[in-house]
């Protein structure tokens, strides 16, 4: 039972980090980014590429089966994923913004983009599964009979660090405050001289960075394949809506809730319906509390 909870938390942290990216695009750029799953996948494949290039495996630190090579590749992936996303924004979403296209146009463009990314991955890396390493999770006893897999604990710690860093970024830095201002009211922010363009760039970079981390961790505990982003998008949207779209911490809470529920479903032998379960929770929340657990009622703008 305890293993299911740990699995749920690990899976939940990946969904949570991805959902934070969704939440930022949703609140700053104001559309549901259907390509978010593929941004995670790109992050994972970028890490994979560097690990293959370095050719030294993923290292290890004590009982943890990954070390500095994986951390270096994550850093590398953060940069390349951010550059990719900024490039796409410049080529596609910037043009749509300038034309003040409807929100639906943005969503369709993102949906098309997810398909393009997914198939570019297939084209470049092939459709087969890939693995960052020959990692076999091995639980070690911590207190008495209570065993955990060290890597799972590290994934949780990394997620916690990310959330703390994000929180201090949003509350203490000027860019973070500007970002919250734009999310709150873009017109008012602009009137007050906030450079919305730079805020938009920062939003993409933060979303892409968290996605690169989440994607690589996901690849480490499971595997890589071109469909990995597609399989994560519905749980991430569910996390976003369950936690509350207007609150970035809601996405984190929602991510863990969805992760735990999915693990619970697996323990009940319902793993075939994993994707549908995230959706079901989302629908229940939409009926009972459309603004989500931590969300506020949205102004329609």
């Amino acid at each position: 039972m305890i293993q299911y909870v740990v699995d749920g938390l690990v899976n939940g942290s990946i969904i949570a980090l991805g959902a934070v990216g969704l939440s930022i695009t949703y609140n700053v750029l104001r559309f549901a980014n259907f390509a978010q799953g593929e941004i995670l996948a790109i992050g994972a494949y970028m890490s994979m590429a560097l690990i293959v290039l370095m050719g030294v495996g993923i290292g290890s630190i004590g009982p943890v089966s990954f070390g500095w090579p994986l951390l270096v590749s994550i850093a590398f992936s953060i940069v390349l994923t951010s550059v990719t996303v900024l490039l796409v924004d410049w080529m596609l979403f910037r043009v749509l913004r300038r034309r003040s296209a409807s929100r639906i146009t943005f969503i369709i463009a993102a949906f098309g983009l997810s398909l393009i990314f997914r198939n570019i991955i297939t084209l470049v890396a092939g459709a087969d599964q890939m693995f960052l390493s020959f990692y076999i999770p091995k639980a070690i006893p911590v207190i008495g009979n209570f065993k955990v897999v060290p890597d799972d604990v590290v994934v949780l710690i990394i997620t916690a660090i990310c959330v703390v860093v994000l929180h201090s970024f949003l509350t203490s830095t000027t860019v973070g405050k500007k970002m919250r201002a734009v999310a709150e009211n873009p017109v008012l922010a602009m009137v007050n001289g906030i450079n919305v363009k730079s805020v938009i760039r920062w939003s993409w970079v933060i979303g892409a960075s968290l996605s690169a981390i989440a994607g690589t961790l996901h690849a480490h505990v499971t595997q890589l394949d071109p469909e990995m982003g597609f399989e994560l998008i519905l749980p991430m949207f569910a996390a976003l809506i369950v936690g509350g779209v207007t609150n970035v911490y809601g996405a984190v809470l929602g991510g863990f809730l969805i992760g735990l529920t999915e693990a619970f479903a697996v323990s009940m032998d319902l793993s075939a319906y994993r994707g549908a379960i995230a959706f079901l929770i989302m629908i229940v929340v939409l009926i009972l509390r459309p603004q989500g657990i931590l969300g506020e009622k949205e102004r329609d703008d």
Partner: peptide, 28 residues
Amino acid sequence: LITLKLREDFLAISTFGIAISLQLVALN
């Protein structure tokens, strides 16, 4: 009934979810 009163993003996400869930049902 569930999504048309909300922002249009929710309709997109929900219909996406419906399609995936229906596929899982058909499969299982």
